[in-house]
């Protein structure tokens, strides 16, 4: 219609008027929107006031430190400071990917995460399902308390327990092996034993506590679903498979997304407590590598590059997991 010349010429003066009107309307709209936002703020200011501490925390502890990330691309020296250090582009990243220790750490991280996910992720779900089947309330409470307990013990003490348990002289593991005539093994110096011990320790420490999330999800399932199934003739086993598990599946998926996002966040204090140079070969992960390079070796810029790489990979992983989940299961974190 606008390509019709007659229309344009005949509507000439009118169009101008219209343009004016449109501009005026837009101005008014904008003004009224500002007004609305103002009114809204005035009315709900308490809610926004409550947000302030969280925003401050985010800014001070998460956003402000990002300023320092730039040293990953700089030849950083403490004396010159972050801003004054010269840019050097991707040099640190090149060094990183030519560093055998870093590549080893990356490989170890991925392997340990994968095993952790494979063996560690299902255990809390399994525990929650088992707790749910316990009918005796007293026994259930006691069992739950016992498996929650390790979560509340400091990692240092947990590591102490593990080291003692696997010690070749007095450890319970070697004692038991001794009964069967097996010679004492110094487990914590053997690279091939580090991963099973580390992953086993993680499961022992956290699985019980992680099961709380699933127990809460199970508690949210409407009891009439089970009653209806009972009348239909379902066994406890069938109810678990056909009602409980599908009902908590969204929770499982969310936990999985979070877990995948944290895949590079191996609990590195536990590694530091358990590893030794003899087991670096299988035990050294990106975070322990960063720790040794950055804090112990003083190569802050190089360590920042490794850390940034870690963060970028984690970000991509979360986004991917979330997208896949949204597409296939209608469940997503955002």
């Amino acid at each position: 219609m606008s390509s019709d010349p007659d229309f344009i010429s005949s509507a000439g003066p009118k169009t101008e008027e219209l343009v004016f009107d449109a501009k005026e309307a837009q101005r008014r709209r904008r003004a009224s929107r500002m007004q609305r936002v103002g009114d809204h703020l005035k009315r709900e200011w308490q809610l926004y006031a409550m947000l302030i501490p969280t925003i401050l925390w985010l800014v001070i502890f998460l956003y402000k430190p990002m300023y320092g990330l730039q040293i990953a691309f700089k030849d950083y020296s403490i004396f010159r400071g972050v801003a004054a250090s010269p840019w050097i582009g991707f040099e640190h990243f090149e060094t990183l990917f030519n560093n055998d220790q870093f590549l080893r750490a990356l490989r170890n991280t991925l392997i340990m995460s994968a095993y952790g996910l494979l063996f560690g992720f299902p255990v809390p779900i399994f525990l929650a399902l088992m707790f749910n089947e316990i009918l005796n309330q007293k026994f259930k409470k006691t069992a739950q308390t016992i498996v929650y307990l390790p979560h509340f013990i400091s990692s240092v003490i947990i590591a102490g327990i593990v080291i003692t348990a696997f010690s070749p002289s007095a450890g319970i593991v070697n004692t038991i092996l001794g009964w069967f005539g097996v010679d004492a093994v110094y487990f914590l110096t053997k690279p091939e034993w580090f991963r099973p011990i580390f992953i086993g320790t993680g499961i022992w420490q956290e699985a019980g506590f992680q099961s709380i999330v699933y127990l809460a999800a199970i508690a949210g399932v409407s009891p009439t679903l089970y009653e209806s199934a009972v009348v239909d003739g379902a066994s406890r086993w069938q109810m678990m498979w056909k009602i409980t598990i599908p009902s908590i599946l969204p929770t499982i998926i969310i936990m999985l997304i979070i877990r995948i996002g944290n895949i590079l966040e191996i609990s590195f204090e536990m590694i530091i407590l358990l590893y030794q140079p003899a087991t670096y070969q299988t035990a050294d992960v990106v975070n322990t590598f960063i720790y040794r390079q950055g804090l112990q070796g003083g190569q802050y810029d190089f360590a920042a590059a490794a850390g940034l790489f870690n963060a970028v990979v984690a970000f991509i992983l979360v986004m991917t997991a979330n997208t896949i989940s949204k597409r296939y299961s209608r469940t997503s974190l955002w």
Partner: peptide
Amino acid sequence: KDRDVAMVFQNYALYPHLNVADNIAFGLRI
């Protein structure tokens, strides 16, 4: 299950993760 009764609940007791056909078929599948 051996009383041969079927019950309809106030809140419907439908399985949210199953479609209508599967909900209806639930008792038969069991």
